[in-house]
Nucleic acid binder design. Sequence first.
RNA 1: GAUUCAGUAGCUCAGUAGGUAGAGCACAUCCCUUUUAAGGAUGGGGUCCUGGGUCCGAAUCCCAGCUGGAUCACCA
Length: 576
Amino acid sequence: MSLIELSEQELVRRQALEELQKLGINAYPAEKFEINATTSEILTFYNEESKNYQNVSIAGRVMSRRIMGSASFAELQDEKGRIQLYFNRDSICTGEDKTLYNTVFKRLVDIGDIIGVTGYVFTTKMGEISIHVSDFKMLSKSLRPLPIVKEKDGQLFDAFTDPEQRYRNRSLDLIVNPNVKETFIKRTKVVNTMRNYLNEKGYLEVETPILQPLYGGAAARPFKTHHNALDQTLYMRIANELYLKRLVVGGFDGVYEFSKDFRNEGMDRFHNPEFTQMELYVAYKDYYWMMDLVEEMVEQVALAVNGTTQVQVGDNVIDFKRPWKRYTMYSAIQEFTGIDISQMNEAELRETALKLKVGIDETMGKGKLIDSIFGDTCEAKLIQPTFIMDYPIEMSPLAKKHRTTEGLVERFEAICNSKEICNAFSELNDPIDQRQRFEGQLELGKRGDDEAMVLDEDFLKALEFGMPPTAGLGIGIDRLSMIMTNSASIQDVLFFPQMRAEKKAAKDDNEKYTALGIPAAWVGVIQKAGYNTIEQLKNANPNKLHQEMCGLNKKLKLELPNPKIEEVKVWVENIS
RNA sequence: GAUUCAGUAGCUCAGUAGGUAGAGCACAUCCCUUUUAAGGAUGGGGUCCUGGGUCCGAAUCCCAGCUGGAUCACCA
């Protein structure tokens, strides 16, 4: 990177780095720095009477500095929080040489630098627990200025809030917005709690392919890629259901996987192209059994994350305490619309949907119509965790036919805060029925449903060997994390949400400029003036260009000899 | 995809009869031995998102585009 592309503040920091080097200080030392305390630990356990923490060694990032002559205060932020540091010139520089304080601390340490300090803990006159620094060491120099977020009585000042900047620059977001860290710690707690719960039950965590020759297990459009050596199309998985069931066939009676799945569909605050699901399959169980498991597991998650079954989400308090309300899909629609659709055929459903102003289209079969009616009339009203059971067979090609009711399958979803958080079935293990269902999907595909499933012969072959009756579950980790952390957007529970690529101005190589006779030192200047390509330079007014170059030379204090106007004209004319 | 709002200094934001671009924090220089978002003084810092247009003159008005937010529709 050329120096002229840097802001003044970045230049100042690079100069400070050079000065440190001149003083013999390595701003990026290799050796470890011994730490024996954390900020939160000191703030919690320091006690003035017992005089503990009188020899602490702690490291972190300098977040603020207040310098007043030979005494200064700074704030140090480590992983756990912040603590105030007190620097006194004569404590840090016990001899005659006051360079460490006067030059290194006061002039060469910037906000954002990572330092290690040793000293003792005391309480200031203002009553704030602080570290009296006896020595400090530069551990990493920060070359970019940090947005300074200040906080007083819970009110934030100058907060770094622009979502685009925050998501594109998550490191910075985490440094200056401490509550962001909290959200991700909670997300990990969600996952760990589930994993512990499942391991305690003796289920086996497994891994299955992400690159798949056929995609399946869900209704979604996939990402497509290509393997060169095999010269074969591969898809990134949209679900791992079919592979996990093949493991159940193989004799694992309880298997689960936390899986990144990929769906090539729209993006908004509930959808990211890659997302995480936990899928679980347990042999010899059914969907009623699985409902009990979901209730118990999610209740434990809520307790682990927030210490209570009640979670504030937006304007609502959601209570995960068992048992949750249970509806069948038909009874839910009847409850919220007063209409019994359980006996309707496709034409009647279409008519009902139109009457209820439900969005439908020509490609929809009976199952999708019912799902649409349910989605539009019921979901918004389901805030507390609720199970919706018994879905139409047409939209659930992997679920087992209902044990008593024709046309339905044994499937449930848990809906919470109007969003699906899990989906589960008594898994279809009849290989002949499964083949027919896949064939039905192929029909839907021909009608234009681009999410219809494809027929997977390998999976069918496995089923033909015999799969025990099995209960299966998929639970959305991102959605669950959003609820558990009261996050309005999926981007807030993903460290690095997918973003559109930032557009960068195209620039020609330096050689193209020097080939015209332009001195290399001036190339950066010309580009800074806005002539990033030879094509742009071709149309430049030489007089204007000359003035801009001289102006930047002066402004940036480059002290280059200014070119003659004739030379500039020749450069521009040379472009053919 | 539709609608709508927005893009000005490192950060948060002002900026209308179209007429030399502002504040606070951050940064620099100087003064100061304990400050609680902020000690005092002085100073530097801008492609006003990009490209066209109108105009003597555009951050401002018009058109197009880019990017993002919000709401809605579809997938988890």
